[in-house]
C-alpha cells in the first residue's frame, strides 16, 4: 500500500512539472504570434497560464502528501 502511494506520488510530481511547462508553452504561443495574437486569445492564455500554475502547485502538494503517506 505504501508502494502504491509512492508510485502515485512520483507520477504526480512528474505531472506537476509537465503542467507547469504547459503554462510556459502557452506563453510561447503568444510570443510566437507577436502582435498578430487577437485580444481574446491573450486574455484566455493569461487565464490558462494562471490555471496551469495553480494546478501544478496543487498536484505538487498532493504528491507531497502522498509521499508522506508512503513513508509513514
Amino acid at each position: 500500500m505504501t508502494a502504491s502511494a509512492a508510485e502515485h506520488a512520483a507520477t504526480l510530481e512528474n505531472d506537476a512539472r509537465i503542467v507547469k511547462e504547459c503554462g510556459a508553452r502557452l506563453a510561447g504561443v503568444l510570443a510566437g504570434m507577436g502582435d498578430d495574437a487577437p485580444t481574446w486569445l491573450r486574455e484566455l492564455v493569461d487565464a490558462h497560464r494562471a490555471a496551469c500554475e495553480v494546478a501544478s502547485g496543487d498536484l505538487a502538494a498532493a504528491a507531497r502528501r502522498l509521499r508522506r503517506l508512503a513513508e509513514g
Binding site: M1, S4, A5, H8, T11, L12, D15, A16, I18, V19, C22, R25, L26, G28, V29, H48, C52, A55, L59, A62, L66, L69
Partner: peptide, 25 residues
C-alpha cells in the same frame, strides 16, 4: 499546441483521479 497542452492536463487529471480512488491507498 492547445490540444497537446489539454491532453497533458487531462492525463495529469486522470493520474490524480486514479490516486484519489485507489482502493489500496
Amino acid at each position: 499546441v492547445f490540444v497537446e497542452v489539454a491532453t497533458a492536463v487531462q492525463e495529469a487529471s486522470a493520474h490524480a483521479t486514479a490516486a484519489l480512488t485507489d482502493s489500496r491507498t
